[in-house]
C-alpha cells in the first residue's frame, strides 16, 4: 500500500503554503473548521419543532438588545457624514449632493459593516461567553447525554436569529444614519430638505439596497460561526483553562470576527461593484 502522507506536494501548493507560513496555514485551518461548524449548524436549522421559542429568544437578545446601540451609532455616524460631506462638497459647490453622499456611503458600506461590528461587540461576545461557560460547566455534555444535539439546541437558533436580525438592524442603521445626515445638513447647516431627499431617491438604486442586505446576511453568518465556534471549543484552548479560557475565547471571537468581516466586506464589494 502506498503511503500518501510522504508524497511530495505539487510545486504550486508547496510554494503557496511556504508563502503563507505557519500562522497563515493555521488561520486557514481555523477558518475552514469554522466553515464546517457553520454548515453543521445550518443543517440543523429546521431539525426540531422546538426551535421557534429558542429563535425568538435569540432575536430578542441579538436584535432588540442591540437596537438602542444601533440607533445611537447610526445617528451619530449619519451626523458626522452630513457634517464632513457638506463642507467637502461645498468646496466644489456640490453641497446639493449631500443626500447622495450620505445615503450611498451608509447603504453600500457603513451600515452593514458598522452594524456587524457593533453586534459582534455586544451580542457576539455574549454568545461566545455564554456557550463557553456552558462548555466548561458541563452543560453541553449534559445536553449530549440527554440526547439533545447541542448544535441544534445552541447554534442553529442563533444562526436563524442572526439571519433575521442583521438585515433589520442594518436597515435601521441606514435609515437613522440618513436622518442624522438630514439633521446636520438640513436642520443645522440650512440645506434644502427636498433636495436632500430627492438626491437620495435618484442615486440609491435597488442594487445598492439588495447588496447592503446581502452583505448583512453574510456578516450574520460570519459573526455567528466565529462566536459560537470559539465558545463551543473553549475547553480545548491551549492558552488557558476554565474562566480564563472563556475570556480568551471571547476576546479572540471578537477580534477574528472583525478581521473576517472587513475581509469579507472587501471581497463582497469587489464582487458587487
Amino acid at each position: 500500500m502506498s503511503d500518501n502522507t510522504n508524497a511530495p506536494l505539487p510545486n504550486s501548493a508547496a510554494s503557496l503554503l511556504r508563502a503563507l507560513g505557519r500562522p497563515g496555514v493555521l488561520f486557514l485551518c481555523e477558518t475552514g473548521a469554522m466553515g464546517i461548524f457553520l454548515a453543521r449548524g445550518i443543517m440543523r436549522m429546521f431539525s426540531s419543532r422546538t426551535q421557534i421559542p429558542k429563535i425568538l429568544r435569540q432575536v430578542r437578545v441579538i436584535g432588540a438588545g442591540s437596537m438602542f446601540l444601533i440607533v445611537f451609532i447610526g445617528l451619530f455616524t449619519g451626523m458626522v457624514l452630513g457634517l464632513q460631506g457638506y463642507y467637502t462638497l461645498s468646496m466644489f459647490g456640490a453641497e446639493g449632493f449631500l443626500g447622495s453622499a450620505v445615503a450611498l456611503s451608509l447603504v453600500r458600506e457603513l451600515a452593514p459593516v458598522l452594524t456587524a461590528i457593533m453586534v459582534t461587540g455586544r451580542a457576539g461576545s455574549a454568545m461566545a461567553a455564554e456557550i463557553g461557560v456552558m462548555r466548561i460547566g458541563d452543560q453541553i455534555d449534559a445536553l449530549e447525554v440527554m440526547d439533545i444535539d447541542p448544535m441544534a439546541y445552541l447554534v442553529a437558533p442563533r444562526i436563524t436569529a442572526a439571519l433575521i436580525t442583521f438585515p433589520l438592524l442594518t436597515s435601521i442603521f441606514s435609515t437613522v444614519g440618513i436622518l442624522g445626515g438630514y439633521a446636520t445638513g438640513v436642520l443645522m447647516l440650512g440645506m434644502s430638505g427636498g433636495v436632500y431627499f430627492s438626491r437620495i431617491g435618484s442615486s440609491v438604486r435597488w442594487a445598492d439596497v439588495s447588496g447592503c442586505l446581502g452583505k448583512s446576511l453574510v456578516f450574520a453568518l460570519i459573526v455567528v460561526a466565529v462566536c459560537c465556534c470559539k465558545g463551543y471549543f473553549a475547553h480545548m484552548r491551549k492558552d488557558g483553562m476554565g474562566a480564563e479560557a472563556v475570556g480568551n475565547a471571547t476576546t479572540s471571537a471578537v477580534v477574528l470576527s472583525c478581521i473576517l468581516l472587513l475581509a469579507a466586506d472587501y471581497a463582497l464589494t469587489s464582487f458587487l461593484l
Binding site: V133, M134, G137, D138, Q139, D141, A142, V145
Partner: peptide, 12 residues
Amino acid sequence: MGVLFQDGALLG
C-alpha cells in the same frame, strides 16, 4: 440514562 453532573450542570 440519567446523569447527575458534579455541579448539577443546569442550564442558566
